[in-house]
Design a protein around this nucleic acid. Sequence first.
DNA 1: ACGCTAACGCACGCCGCTGTCCGCCTCGCT
DNA 2: AGCGAGGCGGACAGCGGCGTGCGTTAGCGT
Lengths: 215, 215
Amino acid sequence: MTDRLPHTLRSDALDNRERIIEAARAVFAVDGLDVPMREVARRAGVAPATLYRRFPTKEMLVTEAFAEQMHACRAVVDEGLADLDPWHGFCLVIEKMCELHARDRGFTAALISTFPNAVDFEARREYALRAIDELARRAKETGRLRPDFVLDDVLLVLMANSGIHATSPTTQVTASRRFAALAISAFQASPDVSPLPPVVRLAPPASVSRRSQAG
Amino acid sequence: MTDRLPHTLRSDALDNRERIIEAARAVFAVDGLDVPMREVARRAGVAPATLYRRFPTKEMLVTEAFAEQMHACRAVVDEGLADLDPWHGFCLVIEKMCELHARDRGFTAALISTFPNAVDFEARREYALRAIDELARRAKETGRLRPDFVLDDVLLVLMANSGIHATSPTTQVTASRRFAALAISAFQASPDVSPLPPVVRLAPPASVSRRSQAG
DNA sequence: ACGCTAACGCACGCCGCTGTCCGCCTCGCT
DNA sequence: AGCGAGGCGGACAGCGGCGTGCGTTAGCGT
């Protein structure tokens, strides 16, 4: 039926592809995912058609653009898991994840959103969550992490962290750092904390928003 | 120069105005501030021109739509101030503010944003912040609120709270409640908490976003 | 060196939102 | 009841983003 397509890109095409991804990374980091595809194309010095040819949907572009971040994400959780002190590892993960997201505005949205077609993305996400869950389990055993902590609290904190906006990247990171520290304080086991209200399983927004598109 | 305009609206105009505000409140609550003006008009059963006649700018509409919320906001901080236990009052304010914002998606944006032309709004905002500051001062005196808390932390928490999105209003509120509880845990004085990273004065986004308008 | 074909980009049609103009309607005063 | 001004809504032009078709360019294999 379908003729075999050559899966090797021409040199110029490959070059353009790289520049597109780089441009996407840059602009997503600063302005979030809600930038027009054309804007990415503009910054990459490429016509819209070219962008659409490589990445027919914004989702694909996002997935590709954040592959590196996802890798960093994995590195962070692995580092946390490797820590001999689980609580310390847990704190590290919270801090670094928050920082990662603070430095890259679009990343939270990308991570929080579910991508119906990007199985790879979803898999990595699952991996990270499982790792954090394991880390939390260990941290609870040491008694430093409050027993009523649940994995969804991490999502909650990350979503919340994404709500923090600042004008300059520096301020953004500083604010996020303080927030992470507060989150850690909140998670720390303590004799005199009141019990937490019930958990929620927060189903993320259906997909990456192509645009606001109220209707 | 300018002829005196009669500042009394006709009965039908007033009625429309009310319906516009009501529609705006409803839609802002659910979808945030980034809804098209026309959508508000549609829901109010009114032509765009009518909407624009009453509220030439979205800012004016927002200001009017959230007047009630701002009142509720004031009521909350006053209730907190009136509490005999400052720490309890402080917690109340955090909880209720978070809930207020959780129930109304647009409100955070409205409160966080600075409105260049809406002095009244700004004044109410200032009042609330001052009140919370005073409450925090007292709560610190009791030793229940951690000494390194600063007023900006409230903004931080509110911004963060606004980052929490859920599909259903119920879930939204539940999630927000848990988040508020975590925030309170974080603010609670405790012998074994690490010092917090430096504060930031987070300058909010310039104004109410008319639309994403990436540039 | 030549030609085939992938790759490029211009330009198009479509849609939704914005803000305004203008002819008709209706409230409210006399 | 009649009239006039204030109010209403349909319609319009402008803009920006989307996704694509098509004629042209240039990489790469022979």
